[in-house]
Design a binder for these strands. Structure first.
Lengths: 222, 222
DNA sequence: ACTTACTTAACACGAAAATGTGATTATTCG
DNA sequence: CGAATAATCACATTTTCGTGTTAAGTAAGT
């Protein structure tokens, strides 16, 4: 579990205000004590459920909010982050959980969490991660980072079926994907609409689809 | 905050073989000396350009390749990674550069780099990053991680125009995006095809589009 | 010189989609 | 309780799309 921090930031030692949303009493109290016992950090609020947090945090306006995933009641930490982030885009959220699976990670990041660390993280590293987050970093273990990177790489590689298309066909497909009518494509590429039809037909055959939408979906790897 | 689990390689101290692709002679030699001088690491090849690396690395098969961005000759480090990764998916690539801008980062990750660290990284951290990479992590500074996360979040936020759609309309749009015919949508949702037609019509009006493809493009925020 | 593949083009037919207009139930909300 | 919104169904017309078939000119490679 390594977090490389760009700068250790002893310079501007302004106090970072922190809120904690965590249902487990022991963990919550331990974190509160840790944060309040460390210079440069202040825990200004703790909550054991999302609903209360959602109500109080807008008044407290902490710099950083630590969020557990599982919370009692109808709302989980992800949803709680999403709502708060929508209203306070500058507030920084750190997901603090035991889950390491892709779904949870991506959901959290999409909801607006910028940091994602595991509960087994040491007190020292937690403090460092909080500061890191506050200063514009995205603290996460390199294991977590790998998941995110893998997602990137998966997204990047195009459907190999597209390679079977000729350059002209790719051009046509690109026009199709942009929603142009056949006659528009024909006029854009200075060819007859019948030729467009033929190309489209060949494209559909090669991609094994029977409609524009399916072809475009393959084009975008969905 | 209980368990302290430092993922140092306590288990098998197998030697990690490393190749270096870097045109600057001083940096290259310094890294080579660092790696060969450290237990558990072996530098089995160094190259000052992409072409030679592309030719030799397939014979050396290092565990990890450190890649500079700027290289003399026609090929840069990104392209070099892309080609090698395509042939050797298990080989791990670390981008080692001075650039911190989004484009370079994303390009490197898409090409297949799993680690991305800056040249100013300390020798100790470099070694740690190499081992980390070899063990399945994605070492990167939290600043770099933030860029990646930001990309995620940007991708996530849906087109606000979609909010104007009713839940039923969103449901229809989702079916449209999957390429279903009207009659298939009708049967999937247990409604008449005429109702589907009507919903589609309303959707198009709200999204200001005139075709399925345009609607789907808006749905996917394109 | 002879394939093979790509691009271009035309015509016809039926299926599907888009447009326009109208109308009947639920549901929600002040 | 009314009013607004959402969801449902219907019919007619026009346009676009998908498919089948045929074929000529070009470029690349054996």
């Amino acid at each position: 579990m390594t977090v490389y921090s760009k700068k250790k930031s002893q310079d501007s030692m302004d106090v970072i205000s922190v809120a904690i949303v965590e249902d487990n009493h022991d963990i919550r109290t331990a974190m509160e004590l840790l944060i309040n016992g460390s210079e440069g950090y202040a825990c200004i609020g703790t909550f054991n459920n999302a609903e209360t947090a959602l109500e109080q945090i807008p008044h407290l306006l902490p710099n950083v909010a630590l969020m557990d995933f599982n919370l009692p009641g109808g709302m989980n930490g992800i949803e709680c982050i999403a709502r708060l982030k929508a209203e306070f885009p500058d507030m920084q959220f750190m997901m603090l959980t035991v889950y390491e699976d892709d779904d949870k990670i991506f959901q959290a990041l999409e909801a607006g969490a910028s940091g994602y660390i595991l509960k087994k993280t040491s007190p020292g590293e937690l403090l460092e991660a909080i500061r890191d987050l506050h200063e514009g970093g995205s603290p996460m273990s390199s294991q977590i980072a790998r998941r995110v990177v893998a997602y990137f790489q998966k997204q990047a590689k195009p459907n190999p079926a597209l390679e079977a298309l000729t350059s002209r066909e790719k051009e046509i497909l690109d026009q199709l994907s942009k929603g142009f009518l056949y006659k528009e494509i024909a006029s854009n590429l200075y060819i007859s609409i019948e030729t467009v039809r033929r190309h489209v037909h060949n494209i559909y055959e090669k991609l094994h689809v029977r409609s524009r939408t399916d072809a475009v979906n393959k084009y975008y790897n969905r």
